[in-house]
Design a protein around this nucleic acid. Structure first.
Lengths: 196, 196, 196, 196
DNA sequence: AATGAATGAGAGTTCATTCAT
DNA sequence: CATGAATGAACTCTCATTCAT
């Protein structure tokens, strides 16, 4: 039989790349960059250790590649908020719910990069900076102001309030929502911080 | 010259032990367990690398010893809250402020143990569990109930609300209050979560 | 369409084998055994990495096979010298020129095997020994003696003088005649070593 | 007993550094950069593999450090030639003898760097270039001219003749003067290339 | 017959721990 | 008691070789 054709090979390659990135995402998110050994990634992805290096030049590059992708995704999500249905309060509540549940790993990893830039590859730290808080918070400012005008949100500098709110959310995500007795706080409780 | 007597030797020993633990506390808090090299601890404590092993059997044991001590201190502080001056709201606000500023390193380390038990020595994780949330939250429940009765706090299961509140505080402490534009949220904003 | 017949298949096989050997020769000559990766050989030969192993059991065997072939070729050339036109001086000059230019790669590789037997497969080193200096020098002895008799060459033990002369030639070939300012020494200068 | 004092420790360090460099010199000279494994160096120096890294940041740095030292030594030796006793012919003969015997390893290594700059650390190649041929040949030009004037050496561009002569010497050194039947050519035979 | 994705042994390097002094 | 040179297990990464297609 003839060898696999180009399309099939490309598909395999894409799958493997995705597998390895997914494994990396989960492990980096949970154990940090230094705490994640390449052997762990290989095991989680179900491939040999050597194979990682056919798809990524180094552990650093794998990390960078993951961060890059996530930052872009995160940016897209935040920009989407003003177009969500409902009042400003409901829009931000939606984003909060999304961050706390669906995209947990992604946010965890992004925020780890933010917290200890000295422990991750330099280039990853740079990428993170370039998508800095501004980029992820700025799109929400108009939404928040609209909420203040309609009386849904408390008064105060919207940048500052949003920053603080995000700060709390981020911290919570990093806690990886343990299996504690009461679990993570309800979104409603958190929103009380902003509600007038 | 005659050799040091037993009392003097014991004093030197206690000092060295304390020096090393203090260095360990700060470094583990900042860089995590895996991110802290024994050479860093020796340098920070101003002793030789080898000396660490006269006072602690291993890096693991040093970490465990530090966690142990901090947990007891934390417990003492929480138990003190009902005896603080002011209303329940003010008492809990006091504790919050204390956790977010004065005892930062201690809390950072404790919480790091809490968050990533896989990354720390198994025994340290066990100690943490044994001082579990209950121990640190239970003493606050009566205070909170008193606050609900006087109308200062929102209604709801006090265990659950306190748990969630602590959860947020803990998360924030772990963020090591970066140099962000707006810094960490004001205690007042956080207290809005509980205030009726 | 019908499959290829046996003759056609054999031809393809011979071509492939030759392709791979030629690529190996150039790369081993330039980069040494250890410095040549199988991936480089595959790329240079324009075949897949796996295919090499259909034609040669291992990288070692490929190397051995190349050395083997070259040694035989070299032997044939040396044996040809007495039948070249011109005086003994001119005959040896001819051989010298040939070695320094036309068959450079071949000689380079042979001599690399000679110089660092530890770095090449053991069997290749053995083959080299078996074709040892004697085999390549002995045919030249009568030529040299004839030159001494006619007064063209200096006096002395012909074996020893030839050996030394070859030794210098071999060393020069191994230098791969760099792009130095003055390039490699002229054949005339070298021949001064032997000329009376 | 008190710990070793500073002087003693410095001596141990100097000894170890020298041990490791000496082992590196011999092995790099014989097997090339890539062909020399750190485990070989450790074994030859009689230390553990890890210890190498207390004295040199990397295998690259060890190599660079060795090349650096040798280049300076080589330069000093060449500059000394005009001050040697005897006629120009005897001075250059002296240098030749020295290169072919006493300082063999040093020259071997230097020349390996010269021959395959792409296979050694980039910085080592740069160092080599900076001490380029000029530096090692230029001091000999006046000596050679003096020899031409007195009729000891053949006529011709002194730069070119010296270059070629050195080229042959270098090539010979790289051959590591095997245990061949007749050994390396006598210095006298080589000098015939230059003698009028 | 041919491909190139996948493997795993072995290389260079780091760092907790030991030990001679 | 105190030192820091020395060790070796474990990590990241490379590359000859295998194997499903």
């Amino acid at each position: 039989m003839s060898p696999l054709n180009k399309k099939q090979l490309d598909q395999i390659k894409d799958e493997r790349r995705a597998q390895i990135k997914e494994a990396g995402l989960q492990l980096f998110a949970r154990h940090g960059f230094g705490g994640t050994k390449t052997s762990m990634i290989a095991a989680e992805a179900g491939v040999s250790e050597g194979l990682i290096y056919r798809y990524f030049k180094s552990k650093d590059e794998l990390f960078i590649s993951i961060v890059q992708e996530l930052m872009e995704e995160g940016k897209r999500e935040t920009e989407e908020v003003p177009r969500l249905p409902g009042s400003p309060y409901e829009q931000i509540k939606s984003l909060t719910e999304n961050m706390l549940s669906e995209n947990k790993y992604a946010f965890m990893l992004i925020l780890q990069a933010a917290r200890k830039p000295e422990e991750i590859p330099e280039e990853a730290a740079k990428i993170f900076e370039s998508y800095s808080a501004e980029v992820m918070i700025e799109p929400l400012v108009p939404v928040f102001i609209k909420g203040q005008e309609s009386g849904e949100f408390i008064a105060g500098d919207p940048h500052q309030l949003l920053n603080w709110y995000m700060y709390v959310i981020n911290s919570l995500i990093l806690d990886e929502v343990g299996e504690k007795e009461y679990g993570a706080p309800s979104v409603e409780l958190l929103m009380r911080m902003l509600k007038s």
